[in-house]
Write a protein that binds this DNA or RNA. Sequence first.
DNA 1: TATTTTCGCTAAATCGATTTAGTAAAAAAT
DNA 2: ATTTTTTACTAAATCGATTTAGCGAAAATA
Lengths: 342, 342
Amino acid sequence: MKKASLSDIALRLGVSKTLVSFVLNGKAKEYRISDDICQRVMDVAKELNYTPNRIAQGLRTGHTKTIGLIIADIANPFFGKLGREIEQEAARYGYNIIFCSSDENPEKSAQQIAMLQQSQVDGFIISPPINSEDQIRTLAKGQIPFVLIDRFFPEIDCNHIVVDNFDAAYTATKHLLSLGRRRIANITLNLDLANMKDRTDGYKQALRDASIEVDENLVKVLPFSHENKDVALAINELLGKKDDLKADAILFSTSKIGIMAIECISSLGLKIPDDIAVVSFDNTDAYKICVSPVTVIGQPLKEIGKTAMQILLNEIKHPGVKVKTQKVTLKTEFIVRKSCGS
Amino acid sequence: MKKASLSDIALRLGVSKTLVSFVLNGKAKEYRISDDICQRVMDVAKELNYTPNRIAQGLRTGHTKTIGLIIADIANPFFGKLGREIEQEAARYGYNIIFCSSDENPEKSAQQIAMLQQSQVDGFIISPPINSEDQIRTLAKGQIPFVLIDRFFPEIDCNHIVVDNFDAAYTATKHLLSLGRRRIANITLNLDLANMKDRTDGYKQALRDASIEVDENLVKVLPFSHENKDVALAINELLGKKDDLKADAILFSTSKIGIMAIECISSLGLKIPDDIAVVSFDNTDAYKICVSPVTVIGQPLKEIGKTAMQILLNEIKHPGVKVKTQKVTLKTEFIVRKSCGS
DNA sequence: TATTTTCGCTAAATCGATTTAGTAAAAAAT
DNA sequence: ATTTTTTACTAAATCGATTTAGCGAAAATA
């Protein structure tokens, strides 16, 4: 027994499928279908267990009620939680999410965008990898609404939602300074990503404002696809020196870096915060139960996800209406725990 | 400028869209399209930047190259990592993943299954919540292939991939016993879930095999939607007693429980493993940098995801061919760290 | 030369919905 | 009694692909 279609119901009742469509879409009144027929259609629909074929609807109407989500890695709790918020908000309006992990790889994201376009998604939410400017520019010229999250390209005018990374890093660094740390390091990712650059800029500015010269040896920039050994190397370079050259604090620009780094620090037998203070971006679970719970910069994931969907749904609902692009910058939350001492 | 369709190419060249379809699907030889026309079709396709409309293809062919994934919560790193593996394997074959978080809520999962069916997914991968037996049974009667992961219902004959939970818990408990622990507790979730039940059963069996009577006061069963306070209560009941009634070790049946519990234990000023030894299911990042890195039962996420997709794709490729249902049980990996002492 | 085969291609049905334009019959208005 | 309006519905186009059946011309065979 295969799925019932509109025609099946129409055939069964000897009416047109137009009528059936009207009834099942709640347009019975509008098209003055008689109450009697109306009821019978609904009865048969229930009896045959009819559900609309969204693919057919999509072909005809041009919208699929599907959103494409491209992030770096759904296995990364930061993106996982963000994905969850987006899913939740989308579900409220009957939208599904197709997710793609780009691994920060622009070729992958290009291919994923293409595939999602072929799947006729109604919109995109993208956390664009480095060197994907062209893809985003092309997207901006097209008809499909999209919103960038987590990062953006300052030179491209399009919707995006980010946090105030500069301010967050500035605050975190000032916090370390206030606790007497002077040789504060920063481990970050490829600085071509706007959000990463802002974090390091904020860190540097805080140092400068405290009249401390920025020591470029204390800024470690990892490749996108960083692994344990990359982090280990950076940690060794920061901590394996003579006392007065050694770092006494580190700001991690992502939690993925931070977790690897803390693992590494522990295995060196060093204690946080006594030997080294740490602060990290992203309030991930791991930091709560850490050797010394980590002071973090928490991002408003719920708000990011919700706002992104809202902007997207609004554009989807009003196609062609070119409203001003939405550029939202949200505040982070600085959560002090024990990893910086006191 | 909107997207080019087959007809656009056909019109431009003054040929039929049948021909264009043949050429672009690599059937030119088979239908003996002349090389000349063939080339011109491809040129125009490129010029117009043609990409097929998967929705239209889906309507006509009946398959959408889309898989529905229903798990408890994509923000939970366990499911996030699993999702990632599934996505990766799916992508290799040109399949997209629509994900849905059920929150272990059967009403939600029922609705999600319905929605995904309407979206004409080619198959499902589901981690079924408690009380969703009927949904799965209905699914089993239908035509759409599916695979259960993480848990299954013993009484329903369908594809599933799980790990040997009994054995894993047994091993973990024996490990604790071998280190001299005697009052070993277990914090778990609603035991109606087959995987949770197996874990607790394995734990109990290990105790019995060591001639230790199972003390039901040491088994704490949390509600599905457990929060910090539920875990805190359980921990208090286990550790807030006189010395000889107190637990000296705990097996956490999920990492979500474990993380909350360890946070709670720390806040009580207790030390792991001195005051209390812990072992947990799931090798989540948090456990690596924990106060005392946690000994865990790691699940073969890559293999689970890969196998699930393989089984699914095989059934999708051979519809109607009712092969034997695949019931796979994979081994876990016991990773000893420092949380049990020595 | 007549017939068959091959070649190169096309018409049209189909998937399952939505939607525009319209129609026949009944009721209301003139 | 005629016209107009309303009522209750339907036919057919459409979205963009796939696929079956078949057609006319050229080439091969008889």
